[in-house]
């Protein structure tokens, strides 16, 4: 698919908006449909789209393997870290009310970081699975042939 002009042009036009939409879904999850899981998947889908059109090698330059693998664990750690922060501030594990002087604001803060953790892990896992499958095809060129 690398040499398909239509795909390349449409991909270049669409991918920024896919990534922007993922960020919108992430931060607007409190008010509309969406949240960390959906945002992570959509963000990963944008990168996968890029890898399909421009090849796995180029995608690996944009989002390197080391970063993806760090994302796997970082999200869960961030999530659990919010829980531990609640403990340290005198509440229960995953108690957001204590995260700020104003309990409601503390809830918002807790939900924000928890959703961020979910998004990071989900995005990392989706990308890692795709990278591993694609790399098994024919050497390192992946699906984009």
């Amino acid at each position: 698919m690398r040499n398909d002009l239509v795909l390349r042009v449409v991909g270049k036009l669409l991918i920024p908006f896919i990534l922007l939409f993922a960020i919108y879904v992430q931060f607007h999850g409190d008010f509309g449909p969406g949240g960390g899981f959906q945002a992570g998947v959509i963000f990963a889908a944008g990168i996968v789209f890029y890898a399909l059109i421009f090849g796995l090698e180029n995608a690996r330059k944009v989002v390197p393997d080391a970063l993806v693998e760090a994302m796997l664990a970082a999200g869960v750690l961030l999530y659990a870290g919010v829980g531990v922060a609640g403990l340290l501030l005198g509440g229960n594990f995953l108690d957001y009310f204590v995260l700020d002087a104003d309990p409601i604001h503390g809830q918002h803060r807790g939900i924000f970081w928890v959703e961020a953790g979910v998004a990071v892990t989900v995005c990392g896992v989706m990308l890692k699975i795709f990278y591993m499958f694609a790399a098994r095809g024919d050497g390192a060129t992946g699906l984009g042939e």
Binding site: G29, D30, F31, G32, P33, G35, G36, Y96, I104, Q107, H108, G110, I111, V114, E115
Partner: peptide, 14 residues
């Protein structure tokens, strides 16, 4: 009580 308009997010995350 967590004042998040999307109840689904409130239930899931909080």
């Amino acid at each position: 009580e967590v004042d998040v308009p999307n109840v689904v997010t409130a239930v899931l995350a909080s």
